[in-house]
Design a binder for these strands. Structure first.
Lengths: 243, 243
DNA sequence: CAAAACTGTGTCCGTCGGATACAGTGTATG
DNA sequence: CATACACTGTATCCGACGGACACAGTTTTG
């Protein structure tokens, strides 16, 4: 895995160190920021699958191979796009760990809705950039002083981030096929004529249709999770103060 | 979208209807089940990216194009693989909605660990097969009679499934790069020399190293979520009985 | 002014999913 | 039993993908 290892180090340098401008030769027509921005725009409009070297190069008025003067390969491109799309981590000014985490998750969700492909690129073994790590820092910071252990803090953050990601992906999928129908329509088609095989599901979808109300899956899950965390924090015996 | 729509119907037929054996012509050398099994095995061993038409065909001793006699395209192949890997939904014999859901999530997690690529294929707009829908049915059934509304039931299930998926992906990523190091190693490298920029994260990782203990991220998150759900069920006023 | 360094381009390769045309094979019908 | 037809697997071809490589043009340094 010498190749992968070397590529990882190159990715690390791209994400964490400011690029050193060369002294000789023609001025570069592009910048890493411009390439990343083009990639983000393309991914937002046509999906991550549409992000190809040729498409980005065309959007920038350059040949495909010109991009390889700036990045070693597509992995690095996606990493830069991810960093650009995540943006600077938000500063959570409110008091108390719970409002902070709730707001943090909501902002993360907003970013994931704006850039649905982020859910795909922020998964798996990879080099993590300063922006992404900054988001984690903010959430962890909110939990310092709650009395939770280190592992518990990280688990809470992972749970919240996982929930935001899952709901964002679900929302993106629902918006892709029809206007508003989420599980209801897609599943409803298959349930027709099979009420005996999936009785609970059919009953629940019927109930859902009768309720008719607005369904905020993100906030619902966040409230449950944070309720559970609050129970643990209280049990730890010092749930009052928080940075 | 005539193409996509037609392909969806074809996928639906493949997943939900038993194949009709042809009357004339040579006997088929393959079966859908064998193709799906080959795909599952390949994905388990070398990842979803290694699942190509040619690889599967080679594993089955057939030309790539022969597969297209059985499936319209790769989307259908992945759908069949997903159904095969998910398997029949478990029957939850224990009493009480909470133990049922906890066990359900644990089994889902086990499946996701055995087939890490399932986290990628069970996302987005797609045709859902009977096995996958059966899993949802089981979880929903556990929540019938808790007094939760339809939307709330579906949200709870989505939250639990999202958590199992998120932790499974995290575990798969951690296992891929080193033996046991999850966030610790990968993030630790980048934090070195930047303690001032990510103080909370550094402190938490230090605490984690000092604790040294075993970290069950799945159960931790499940307990928090189910604690929160229990609060809601109790508030609804009839949290005692459950089918 | 020449050498060196750097940029962008053109060409080529292997692999991917898939369309199409064709040859071989087995069954139903005359 | 012979023939037509339905069905199978194969061979060939295509466009798009990520990427390697050699080359021509441009700018700075000696």
């Amino acid at each position: 895995m010498t190749t992968a290892e070397g590529a990882s180090q190159e990715t690390y340098r791209l994400l964490w160190e400011s690029p050193t401008a060369p002294r000789r030769g023609p001025k570069p027509t592009l910048t890493l920021a411009a390439i990343a921005a083009a990639g983000v725009e393309l991914a937002d409009e046509e999906g991550l699958a549409a992000v190809t070297m040729q498409h980005i190069a065309a959007a920038l008025g350059v040949t495909k191979m010109a991009l390889y003067r700036y990045l070693p390969g597509k992995v690095e491109l996606v990493a830069l796009m991810t960093e650009a799309a995540m943006g600077e981590a938000p500063s959570l000014d409110m008091a108390g760990w719970r409002p902070k985490l709730h707001e943090w998750a909501r902002r993360l969700f907003a970013g994931l809705v704006r850039h649905p492909w982020l859910a795909d690129t922020t998964v798996g073994a990879r080099v993590i950039g300063p922006h992404e790590l900054g988001w984690t820092e903010q959430a962890v910071a909110a939990l310092i002083g709650t009395g939770l252990r280190g592992a518990e803090i990280l688990d809470v953050v992972a749970t919240l981030a996982g929930h935001a990601k899952a709901i964002a992906q679900q929302a993106a999928a629902a918006g892709a096929q029809t206007a508003e129908a989420g599980l209801t329509d897609a599943i409803g088609t298959m349930l027709r004529g099979r009420e005996d095989r999936f009785p609970a599901l059919v009953a629940t979808l019927d109930a859902l249709a009768r309720e008719g109300g607005q369904d905020d899956a993100l906030d619902f899950g966040l409230t449950r999770i944070l309720d559970g965390v609050e129970l643990l924090v209280t049990a730890r015996g010092q749930g009052s103060d928080a940075g």
